[in-house]
Design a protein around this nucleic acid. Structure first.
Length: 278
DNA sequence: AGCTCAACCTGGCTGC
DNA sequence: TGCAGCCAGGTTGAGC
């Protein structure tokens, strides 16, 4: 999916069009996403205003008057604001109509999610899927040495590879498969190193690398993703150049050593065997 | 509790 | 051309 930067770019793109607007209709074209799209949505949402659009990890949280709409883009989801008259496209799954404009969830692989959490069930932070998430990389809690502390504390006693540890999002959220390889390269850490063996200074470098890589990707307006389009339907202003991801056998941009690919937890990892140490 | 792995689903690419 | 096989941005949940 879109990793955190793509979700954030999407949020920034749709927010000015939708905040304060009232839902007029919800059309579920195909509700068989990761979980069934709640069928009550088209009964309760019409007439409700979007109070705010926030993000937690890779989830978009729409605060409505009586509850929260949670959207997740899965691997292939995109959200766009379009004129309501725009013809349906294949793989459009759910449409939120706001009068003359609509928000469309397009998701070929259907790994995305549309969920509803009524305010009567408590604060959105208590929603089960959000409970186990790690800290937000751009909050003070993860800034400077706080970030290093979090990575260090969470990784103690863990035998899992640092690649999978970071990807799991239990310490810090938002790092997906691409930016995980990029962050480990930036920090000079081998992806197969046991998380529990990370030194304090490696944690410090890794925390800084995660912030840098994610920030840079957001500023680039999008992404390294081949088929990512932002909420305007653009592929992003600049493509982020990856240093290791999807560069198997190509020369490391720092030392010219061929980049290696390995599989960890059923996902590809890319690294420079010279620049990244165990 | 932590780890591994199958599963969800569709499309695009590679190689025969 | 056609088709089988493999790969892809994420995350849960089962089983050990």
């Amino acid at each position: 999916m879109p990793e955190l930067p793509e979700v954030e770019v999407t949020r920034l793109g749709i927010q000015p069009h939708l905040e304060g607007r009232k839902v007029s209709a919800v059309q579920v074209i195909d509700g068989r996403l990761r979980w069934p799209v709640p069928s009550i949505l088209n009964k309760i949402l019409p007439g409700q205003k979007v109070i705010s659009i926030k993000r937690r990890g890779k989830y978009l949280l729409f605060e409505m008057e009586t509850g929260y709409l949670l959207l997740h883009l899965g691997m292939t989801g995109t959200l766009r604001v379009l004129p309501s008259s725009e013809p349906l496209k294949i793989h459009d799954r759910v449409i939120f109509v706001f009068g003359k404009i609509s928000l469309r969830l397009h998701d070929p692989r259907k790994f995305g999610a549309v969920l509803w959490h009524p305010k009567s069930k408590g604060p959105i932070e208590s929603y089960p899927l959000l409970l186990k998430l790690g800290v937000e990389p751009f909050l003070t809690e993860f800034s400077g040495e706080h970030g290093a502390d979090i990575l260090y504390q969470h990784s103690r006693g863990r035998s899992i590879a640092v690649k999978q540890f970071l990807l799991a999002g239990q310490a810090v959220v938002g790092v997906g498969n691409i930016y995980c390889s990029e962050s480990l390269f930036e920090a000079g850490i081998h992806p197969a190193k046991a998380a529990g063996k990370l030194t304090r200074s490696q944690c410090s470098r890794l925390a800084a690398a995660v912030r840098l890589i994610l920030k840079r990707a957001i500023e680039a307006g999008g992404s390294s993703l081949k088929d990512f389009v932002n909420s305007e339907g653009d592929p992003g202003h600049f493509m982020v150049q990856t240093k290791v991801y999807d560069r198997k056998d190509q020369a490391c941009k720092v030392c010219k050593t061929p980049i290696k690919q390995i599989v960890q937890g059923q996902r590809s990892s890319y690294f420079c065997p010279q620049c990244q140490k165990r």
